[in-house]
């Protein structure tokens, strides 16, 4: 649970520059960051600050152009091939021709799990995200919140220790979002996974995280890393406490500083 000697994600002077028609775009520059095992790390910042790009570099969906990064002590590519992480996208990205069950079975099929084990894991993960009984439905028969929960179940199914979540609740309304945030914390406590969570909501970041990484754009960089002093056990009304508001204030200050630096 507590930080172990070898971090799950470790970035040193990490940079990524896209070459576009309008010249180079510095999506990430000089990012130094460590994510310890069992951490819940949120990345927050305005759009273009590189928070999603950082997650994609960790996932080996993009390649860094400078600096170094290791995931579980390996290169991101090795980590991806070792199936070290589950990725939850901004949209559920469930395959509409597969039932919820079959969607969760997808990574298990690809990774060659036996049918009996697949069934057992599907049942367990559906239960984790409170979707038991919906396995036979097609994604388009469920609400947006249920679809996103199903996609989280899919990322959990193969038991990777690292969960990368890219604004998973961004498209949902606030009531559903609160509910899913609460569930996500329970899930994190139950599975003891390391979670990297991209968001643009300050309350969401403060509520969920043990560590908040504040980022700013042009070039995408880290402006502040805030260690949360909130307890791990967090009811929804913790958001009214002075401690919570203070952390939120610090995040807001960090975001503002990142902006004034630019203008």
């Amino acid at each position: 649970m507590t930080s172990s000697p070898s971090p799950v994600v470790s970035a040193r002077k990490l940079g990524l520059t896209f070459q576009t028609g309008d010249g180079p775009v510095h999506a990430l520059s000089d990012v130094d960051l460590e994510v310890a095992k069992g951490d819940f790390v949120s990345f927050i910042g305005p759009s273009g600050c590189g928070k999603t790009t950082f997650l994609r570099v960790v996932a080996d969906l993009e390649k860094n152009t400078s600096g170094e990064i290791t995931v579980n002590g390996m290169t991101p590519e090795e980590a991806r091939k070792a199936r070290a992480y589950g990725y939850v996208f901004q949209a559920p990205a469930l395959y509409p021709w597969r039932t919820i069950e079959k969607n969760i079975a997808l990574p298990l099929e690809i990774m060659g799990h036996a049918p009996a084990e697949r069934a057992e894991r599907i049942e367990r993960t559906l239960d984790l995200v409170n979707l038991s009984g919906f396995g036979k439905k097609y994604p388009w028969q469920l609400s947006g919140g249920m679809q996103q929960r199903a996609s989280i179940a899919r990322a959990l199914a193969f038991d990777a220790d690292l969960l990368l979540m890219d604004e998973p609740f961004g498209a949902l309304d606030e009531i559903v979002r609160d509910h899913l945030n609460e569930q996500l914390l329970k899930l994190w406590a139950a599975t003891q996974k390391t979670i990297c969570f991209v968001t643009h909501s300050i309350p969401e970041a403060v509520y969920l995280s043990t560590k908040i990484v504040v980022m700013s754009p042009r070039p995408g960089r880290v402006t502040d890393v805030i260690e949360s002093t909130l307890p791990r056990e967090r009811p929804l009304d913790i958001r009214e406490t002075p401690e919570f508001l203070e952390i939120a204030h610090r995040v807001r200050e960090g975001l503002r500083a990142g902006h004034s630096y630019e203008e």
Binding site: L61, R80, K81, F89, I110
Partner: peptide, 28 residues
């Protein structure tokens, strides 16, 4: 879609698995 392909990539799925499980059904 790009997201669906990224998903397959995140599973370290090989060419034929991606073809059979994602691209052919989407092409139907």
């Amino acid at each position: 879609g790009a997201m669906e392909r990224d998903l397959m990539r995140s599973y370290a799925s090989d060419y034929w698995q991606t073809l059979v499980k994602l691209r052919l059904p989407a092409a139907m």
